[in-house]
Simulated assay, not measured.
Amino acid sequence: MKHLTFLFLFLISGLSLQAQTPEERISQLGIDLPEVKRPLANFVKWRQVGNLLFLSGIGSDQKGRLGEDLNVEQGYEASRATGIMILATLKAATGDLNRIKNFVKVRGMVNSAPDFYEQPQVINGFSDLMVEVFGEKGKHARAAVGHVSLPFNIAVEIEVVVELEE
Rank of each mutant, 00 (worst) to 15 (best):
G67K: 04
A78Y: 02
S79M: 07
L9E: 11
M109V: 02
A141Q: 12
E77L: 10
K37I: 01
G75Y: 02
S127N: 07
P114W: 03
F54Q: 06
Q18Y: 00
M130S: 10
D115E: 15
V106Q: 09
F8K: 15
V36C: 03
Q20L: 11
D32E: 12
P39M: 13
F10T: 11
M130Q: 08
L40T: 12
P114S: 12
K45W: 00
K63I: 10
L87K: 12
G14H: 02
V161H: 12
D69P: 01
V104N: 10
L40Y: 02
E157K: 00
L53G: 09
K2Y: 00
A81P: 00
K139E: 11
S13H: 12
H3P: 00
M109P: 00
K63N: 08
D32W: 01
V72C: 07
P114R: 02
V44Y: 08
T94K: 00
A81C: 00
N42D: 12
L7S: 06
V110F: 08
A88H: 09
G30I: 03
G125L: 00
Y117F: 15
K37N: 12
I86M: 14
K45S: 13
D69M: 06
S127T: 03
H3F: 09
K37H: 10
K101V: 02
S60L: 04
F103W: 13
G64F: 03
L53A: 11
T21M: 04
G125W: 07
G83M: 01
I100C: 01
Q20A: 15
G138R: 01
S112D: 00
A88N: 06
G108Q: 03
S149H: 04
Q62E: 15
E165P: 07
Q48E: 13
S112L: 08
E166M: 09
G50W: 00
R142Q: 15
A93V: 05
T94E: 04
V161T: 15
A113C: 03
L53R: 02
L150S: 11
G59P: 04
M1T: 13
E68N: 14
I123T: 11
S127G: 05
I154V: 14
H3L: 12
A141K: 04
E118L: 15
E157G: 02
E68F: 05
G135S: 08
L55T: 08
F152W: 10
V162D: 09
L11A: 04
G67A: 11
E166K: 14
E23Q: 15
M85W: 06
D61M: 09
G67L: 03
N153Y: 04
Y117I: 11
T82A: 08
N111C: 08
D96C: 08
Y76T: 07
V133R: 01
D61K: 13
S60W: 05
L52R: 14
K105H: 13
V49S: 10
V161I: 11
E136D: 13
V145M: 12
A144L: 04
E163Y: 02
D69W: 03
Q121N: 10
F43G: 08
K45Y: 02
W46T: 06
M85N: 08
F126V: 04
L7F: 01
V106I: 14
S16A: 06
Q28P: 01
V161W: 03
L17Q: 14
M85P: 00
V148A: 14
F152Y: 07
N71C: 05
S27L: 02
V104I: 06
L33C: 13
L15A: 14
I26A: 05
R25F: 02
L87G: 08
T89W: 02
